[in-house]
Design a protein around this nucleic acid. Sequence first.
DNA 1: GACATACCTTGCATGCTATGCAAAGATGCA
DNA 2: TGCATCTTTGCATAGCATGCAAGGTATGTC
Lengths: 223, 223
Amino acid sequence: MSEKGAAQGGLRERKKRATRAALAEAAVRLAAEHGAEKVTVEAISAAAGVSVRTFFNYFDTRDDAFVVIDADAGARMRQAVLDAPAALSPLQALREALAAELAEAEQQHELWRLHAQVVHASPHLLVRTLGAHMADETGLAEAVAARIRAGGPTASVSPPACATDEERRGALDLYPRLLAAVAGTAVRTSVEHWSARPEEAAFLDVFQEVFALLAAGLPAPPA
Amino acid sequence: MSEKGAAQGGLRERKKRATRAALAEAAVRLAAEHGAEKVTVEAISAAAGVSVRTFFNYFDTRDDAFVVIDADAGARMRQAVLDAPAALSPLQALREALAAELAEAEQQHELWRLHAQVVHASPHLLVRTLGAHMADETGLAEAVAARIRAGGPTASVSPPACATDEERRGALDLYPRLLAAVAGTAVRTSVEHWSARPEEAAFLDVFQEVFALLAAGLPAPPA
DNA sequence: GACATACCTTGCATGCTATGCAAAGATGCA
DNA sequence: TGCATCTTTGCATAGCATGCAAGGTATGTC
């Protein structure tokens, strides 16, 4: 757990990680300074020290550089769900996996803060970010389903055997799907509510309150 | 309730609605036939009988034409939440508002089916669609909050007095926000689960089961 | 009905985004 | 070292997106 994304793999792979991270960071910093609309791919590439063509080897779209800060956060969360203690309920396992990921993001605090600032500044990017998060939830749903089937932690996080999207969706039951989607929603709602007034409450408290509300079945107005 | 989006307003407004609808429909049909990537703005515009420049007067982006079929569905849902009987709990009011909107979409059955087909064919568009739906949830959260404050149905759906996004988010409490987000999640999860195997269960049954699971607090595996 | 007003559409010019291709450079491995 | 593999890069090209100004179409007033 000490060195997750550090000296993993050979030189080639490390360089790729570095380049990707450099591009993403350059994009966010430039956007925070000048506004996302005024930042061209050329500027981002120059700041990261690569050619424009290389930028498009890493990102399909200019906006992706603003949206996808950490490309393999999804994989880490899936693994965390699978590795969680067997004693935890599905909802609890998800809560812990997400909390761990949020704690890790906290270490890149400044960058994530800029990211949030950039994304909230243009509705366009906000939509893309929300959508990207939701796409991750499909992976989480698979992990939850596997966990339930196995009755405990599982070994691998390798991509499912299903070939098409059709099959993959068909293989998922309603419950894991709903659980993953709701958990993702819980995170986003917590983040949004907290970031509206960061001084009013600790983020972790908001996060726990949201999960408590969910576990209670969203009872009518608590006022 | 009989003529919602029909002969509303003057000729000018009707023409704009018609043009927008024609563009959206042309986009979806062309994409369903040739694949979204192969459909140019020029083709869409030609099919709708307008110039390319006019296309961009209605949509900021080419992809928007594939994503936003019904531009003011969000406003209708907000109004429905505000107009719901005072006896309903917030969760119930949301459920009814969403169910009504889904029923209306059923009348454009073929178009929505094509839309789903197009969107699920390219992950890119799926992400955008998911994000767009989530953006609507902010409006729903406002409606829920207003409903709770008023203790019953309210009159207007006019935009809130808040100037900035910052203020608007600050004005929202945790509970309405969570409720709206979770309800939106419920709809998407229902649609996805049902559309994976449409023959296995009626959509409305899936929809109701999801809300039942939510109201029960997402208890551990029902198996 | 004629007029002024406001709005919508359109073509043109322009700059940026995005992809395929082939050559050159960097890495991994025997 | 030498070969195979992967990555980077420049170039060419097509499509996306916006500002601007000219012309056309509804709307309200006289």
